[in-house]
Computed example of a mutant assay.
Amino acid sequence: MRWIWIDKFLEFRSGEFAKAIKNLTLAEEHLHDHLPGYPVMPASLIIEGMAQTGGILVGEANGFTEKVVLAKIPRAEFFGVACAGDQMIYEVTLTDLRSEGAVVEAKAFLDGQLLADVEIVFAHLDQSRSNQIFGPKNFVFTQQLLGVLDLAKAQERARHLPAPGDPARPGHPEGPDAVAPSPTDTGKGLTVPGE
Score class of each variant (00 low, 15 high):
I4K: 05
I4T: 11
W5E: 04
W5A: 10
I6D: 07
F9M: 06
F9T: 02
E11I: 00
R13D: 14
G15E: 13
F17D: 06
A20V: 04
N23Q: 10
L26F: 11
L26E: 10
L26G: 10
E28F: 09
L31F: 13
H32L: 13
D33V: 03
H34A: 05
P36K: 06
P39C: 12
V40M: 13
M41G: 00
P42W: 07
A43K: 08
S44T: 13
E48G: 05
M50A: 13
A51Y: 09
Q52S: 05
I56L: 15
I56M: 13
V58D: 10
G59L: 06
A61L: 03
A61R: 04
T65V: 09
T65L: 09
K67G: 01
L70W: 08
K72F: 02
I73T: 14
I73P: 04
I73N: 03
A76W: 11
F78N: 10
F78H: 09
F79R: 15
V81F: 14
C83G: 02
Q87T: 15
M88Q: 10
M88H: 06
Y90C: 02
Y90A: 05
Y90Q: 02
E91V: 01
E91Y: 05
D96A: 10
S99P: 00
E100R: 06
E100S: 12
E100T: 07
E100I: 00
G101S: 03
A102W: 04
V103N: 09
V103D: 12
V104W: 03
A106M: 06
K107S: 09
A108M: 05
A108H: 06
D111P: 00
Q113H: 11
Q113E: 14
L114N: 10
A116G: 10
D117T: 00
V118C: 10
I120N: 04
V121F: 11
F122V: 02
Q127M: 01
N131I: 07
Q132L: 15
Q132H: 12
I133N: 01
G135P: 02
G135R: 08
N138F: 06
T142A: 06
L146I: 11
G147Q: 06
V148F: 12
V148R: 14
L149E: 11
L151Q: 15
A152I: 05
K153E: 14
K153R: 15
K153H: 13
A154G: 01
A154H: 11
Q155Y: 05
E156K: 12
R157K: 15
A158W: 09
R159G: 00
H160M: 14
H160N: 13
L161M: 15
L161W: 14
A163G: 03
P164K: 12
P164S: 11
G165C: 09
G165K: 12
D166I: 02
D166Q: 04
P170F: 12
H172G: 01
H172E: 04
P173L: 11
P173H: 08
P173Q: 10
E174V: 00
G175F: 07
G175D: 04
A178G: 03
A178W: 06
V179E: 13
V179K: 12
S182L: 15
S182M: 11
P183N: 03
P183D: 11
T184P: 00
T184S: 12
G187P: 04
T191F: 13
T191A: 14
V192H: 08
